[in-house]
Design a binder for these strands. Structure first.
Lengths: 195, 195
DNA sequence: CAGCTGACAGATATTGAAATCTGTCAGCTG
DNA sequence: CAGCTGACAGATTTCAATATCTGTCAGCTG
């Protein structure tokens, strides 16, 4: 917790920023707070990040990329495409639900950050639909799925499951019947994909 | 525009409230404004609606019910169930897109009102999924759809198309490729429903 | 006397002055 | 001399005083 006197790196600033955001929330977290947490002047922070907005975007990217990385394992899993598709969607839902449930305040903080940084979010969504597209392509190649345009189909599947990964629906993830809802949608989609 | 001196009815108050909301927006519309628009004292408004919250809820209900009514015609349309399902989803999407596009400020106003009145919204969603369920049941009866539990399937279809009717996605309805996205999702769902 | 008015108390919103923050940069320091 | 500091101008936020609004009700009016 005490500010180590290593040299000031972008990475250390990002860590401190995440901590300040967790403590103060997105509205009250200031660059001065971040500098204080690191035991440096706020001018030094501006040496590594040109503006506060750039700093916040970098933190957001880092957070989004952690989710992407966690899911990439499922894509290359050793199972048939339908099972991998189901696993991937379930893993995405579970990850989101865990994040929202474990630390609602931090989740709300990142929700604010993501609406602020549409750019970073678009890139993240492209990453995720890319993973989905790979699974669907594998299914088409194996002859178990029908999809004239796997990229477009991946986006369709992603959009159709929005209720189970879009942060805007986080409140609904508490409902007792949400798991049944999820399974009903996935069932419909998998049936729609089958050759 | 001049306040007619008919007797003050709940309906006239609701109309005036809608007009005040359109003019001032949800944050600044006051009961005093509504009374002024009607040429009465604000005490008279409280004779018909116990609180401001009740008044706003009533306006919200009215607005939601207009949408439900507009769609009910499609349910009883003379066409095969698959066509009716496609028509109904398209009509819902078109109605939402038109509302959001024609008068964005009023749409934003009602967005605020709907988050305020979760109760009224739940009832509205139940109405809509009820209409969907009837179409799906007809499809099951005709042997063209498979759905062990049509009510649950209706909810699944409704959730899966959320991106095309949930007001939270209104910004995305401006994208040039939204129509293609819509058709891709509907295609997948219809395929998933077929017997 | 049914329905409306307007004064009122407490709650909520607005406003403008004071405090804090962002982003810059000349100069300090190891 | 590379990297950090801290004072500064302008932008933004906070806070407390002031104004407006909500909800009630005793009494007015047609």
């Amino acid at each position: 917790m005490a500010p180590t006197s290593e040299t000031l790196t972008a990475e250390r600033i990002l860590e401190a920023t995440e901590e300040v955001l967790r403590r103060h929330g997105p509205a009250k977290a200031t660059v001065v707070d971040v500098a204080r947490a690191l035991g440096v002047s706020h001018g030094s922070v501006y040496r590594h990040f040109r503006t506060k907005a750039v700093l916040r975007e970098a933190v957001t990217k880092r957070w989004l990329d952690r989710t992407t990385a966690a899911l990439s394992g499922v894509v290359t899993e050793d199972a048939d495409p339908e099972a991998r598709l189901r696993d991937w969607l379930a893993a995405l839902f579970a990850a989101k639900r865990r994040k929202a449930g474990d630390d609602p305040e931090l989740f709300a903080t990142y929700q604010v950050l993501t609406v602020e940084n549409g750019e970073a979010v678009s890139a993240h969504l492209a990453d995720l639909t890319g993973q989905l597209a790979r699974i669907i392509e594998d299914g088409v190649d194996a002859g178990v799925f029908t999809a004239p345009d796997p990229e477009a189909t991946a986006r369709a599947v992603f959009h159709a499951t929005g209720r189970f990964h879009d942060p805007g629906y986080a409140a609904a993830w508490q409902r007792h019947d949400i798991q049944a809802e999820f399974e009903a949608v996935v069932e419909l989609l998998v049936r729609g994909l089958r050759a």
